[in-house]
Design a protein around this nucleic acid. Sequence first.
RNA 1: GCCCCCAUCGUCUAGCGGCCUAGGACAUCGCCCUCUCACGGCGAAGACACCGGUUCAAAUCCGGUUGGGGGUGCCA
Length: 490
Amino acid sequence: MNTVRVRFAPSPTGYLHVGGARTALFNWLFARQHRGVFVLRIEDTDLARSTEEATQAILDSLEYLGLDWDEGPRKGGSFGPYFQSERLHLYRQYVEKLMEQGRAYKCYCTPEELDQRREEQIKRGEATHYDRHCLHLSPEERAQYEAEGRSYAIRFKALDEGVTEVDDLIRGKVRFDNTAQVDDFVIVKSDGMPTYNFAVVVDDALMGITHVIRGEDHLSNTPKQIQIYQALGFPVPQFAHIPMILGSDRALLSKRHGATSVMQFKEDGYLPAAMVNYLALLGWSYDDAQTIFSIPELVEKFSLEKVSKNPAVFDMQKLEWMNGVYIRELTLEELLAEVLPFWQKAGFVPGEITPELKGYCLRILKELQPRMKLLAEAVELARYFFTDDYQYNQEAVAKVLTKPRTEEILQYLAEVVAGAQELQEEELKPLFKQGMEKFGVKMGDLMQPLRVAVTGTNVSPGIYEVLALLGRERVLERIERTIKMLKERS
RNA sequence: GCCCCCAUCGUCUAGCGGCCUAGGACAUCGCCCUCUCACGGCGAAGACACCGGUUCAAAUCCGGUUGGGGGUGCCA
């Protein structure tokens, strides 16, 4: 039985975005399900745009998502090197082979000349194909170009008749007319670096890749690659082209649609399991009922056959909802571990926390858990639990602290709190009810002013829980402070 | 321009000729719970792009139109 070998091959020209992450995920799921090998290869043949930082960011992003690779950077493997820039000797070897076979030739045309001829072709309504100017060079012309010191690229001599068929696992058989669709494309740039369409074939073949799972943007280039496989005598792998991810305006997802960098999602507080679950559902589905899938479950249930053919719009709201679902599934201990870095960064808690402080944090999280969609929200939601240095929300003040007898009510509540044995619902509720009667108001008319007084906002967990968490001293202090503020205002 | 892919609620999708007066999820709206906000529960509204065929029967098959996406690069 042949082992499944798949790969994710990003180019380190920027951060890993959600589209790339989804491609990596589908490859990873496929590999894990088939107990195959997931290879990570860095396609850094674009000298001008590739950076070391981008490579690191991509690796970090994959690790955050939990998409571990079996071969590749930081890991090694017996099919390396895993950076294309270190595989130049291999490409050179296969270029020579093609040249010897007469399937590749030097092209001295300049970019300017090429552009000009391309425009003329469009003007004439023709397909924009290389006109094979340099394939038919006479020895004299060649010598002339060499004498001029022109640099050259190397082009693949494509088939000029028949069709090349791509047998795609998701789209079925797709036929491309060789005459109309595949021209003599460049395989080695004038700087000596291989182009994508060439390097990808050599690498996938040499690395024993059995299934090429990648974005649909690569479908149109696949016939070119198949011709290379055939010219070099390599077995052609199985292809699976997955649909693109679009923004809300149905244009290809990009930075201008907001957060698209995987690391940004990490910083905003998305749980890896939620990201993976959401990404899996972008282009794949299982049945008509299930939307929440654990990672092991995805490994078990994923299949290329169920991958959709149409592009998917990235829906941030659904991702947020899903993240909330995953947050609610965590134990408080687990949630604390996730939230702690955010609270530390905000200066709420020190790097090392005492058991006592930890207990306090857990009690806070118990209240926050059903209210959180993002881990980062835990900072603003918990601010008044950790510091007195918070602002009154002015809308809240205007809405609930401007009623006639507010100061009296707050004064009454302060007395209740001061006199209570313990700040808990059982004891407080009857006293609050007495207040209702005393002032002839509804429960909300007591609780909302109290809420704004002790939290600065009109939105918080249940007031009894908030009071218990804050403790008598802070509650009284804050009520006093609020009354003072109201007096100064009037 | 030329080539390729795609087309079910606003969004992600189920559906692979009769089970569909089209199912689920997010979002929206309403009700319940209730001290606010969430969570949770219940309910509503909401789609087969269009036109032709094939068939006893089409969201499902075929053709066309329209629309969207991709490719066409000495980027990947």
